Amino acid sequence: MPTVSVIIPTYNRADVLPRAIDSALDQTLSDVEVIVVDDASSDETEPVVTSYDDPRVIYRAHETNQGGSAARNTGIEIAEGEYIALLDSDDEWAPTKLERQVGTLERRSDEWVAAYCGTTIVDDEEANPLWERFKSLVGRHSSREGAEGGEELVKEILMENLHTSAGSTLIVEKSVVDKIDGFDESFDRYQDTEFLIRVLKQGKLAYVDEPLLLRYPSGGPSADAVRQANSHYLQTFAEDVVELETRGYDVTGTHHYALASLYLREGRFEPGLAFLRSGTTPGIGQLPGLLFSVVKGFQNRMSA
Rank of each mutant, 00 (worst) to 15 (best):
G220Q: 13
H141N: 10
E243A: 14
T169N: 10
A20T: 12
E173G: 14
E245Y: 10
S165D: 14
S5T: 07
V242Q: 12
R72N: 06
D181R: 11
L213A: 05
E33F: 03
P9V: 00
S175G: 08
E82H: 09
P9E: 02
Y263T: 07
T28H: 12
F275Q: 09
N128H: 01
T236W: 03
G118V: 05
T45S: 05
V241P: 06
L153D: 02
A274W: 15
T10N: 04
T96K: 13
R13T: 04
T254A: 11
V172F: 06
G139L: 02
A274R: 15
F134H: 09
G279L: 03
E80R: 15
L170E: 06
P2V: 13
K201H: 03
D184N: 15
F269G: 07
E63A: 07
E80M: 04
R108A: 10
V36K: 11
V16Y: 04
D188M: 00
D88S: 03
P217H: 11
L287K: 15
P288C: 06
T3K: 11
F183L: 08
L137I: 14
V113A: 02
K174V: 02
L291K: 07
A258C: 01
T119H: 13
Y52T: 03
P2E: 10
E125D: 15
L244M: 07
A61N: 02
G118R: 05
L291I: 13
I157K: 04
G279A: 08
S5I: 03
G203M: 04
I76F: 11
T280M: 02
K296A: 11
D31A: 03
L262V: 00
Y116V: 15
T164G: 12
S175M: 03
L244G: 05
T169S: 11
E145H: 10
I121M: 14
C117F: 08
E185V: 09
Q235L: 00
A229M: 02
Q286Y: 00
T164D: 13
S278C: 08
E44Y: 08
Y257H: 14
L290N: 10
K179C: 01
A225D: 15
L98W: 01
Q235G: 00
P271T: 07
P9H: 04
E82K: 10
S186H: 05
E266Y: 07
F183N: 10
D43C: 05
S23A: 02
V177C: 08
D22H: 09
L137Q: 10
Y52A: 01
F237N: 02
G81N: 09
Y263P: 09
E145V: 04
D184R: 13
V36F: 14
L273I: 14
V4G: 08
T28S: 15
E156D: 13
E132D: 08
N128P: 01
Y249Q: 04
T246S: 13
T50F: 00
E126S: 13
D15Y: 12
S231Y: 00
T193C: 03
Y216C: 04
E125V: 12
V295R: 13
P217E: 09
V294G: 01
L87D: 07
G203L: 03
S23Y: 04
V36P: 14
P18C: 03
I157R: 01
D224W: 00
A274F: 14
H141G: 05
I8K: 09
R189T: 02
A14F: 04
R100I: 00
G253C: 01
N128S: 05
S109L: 00
A94R: 11
Q27T: 01
T281G: 08
E148A: 06
P271Y: 01
E106F: 00
V208I: 07
R277G: 10
R13F: 02
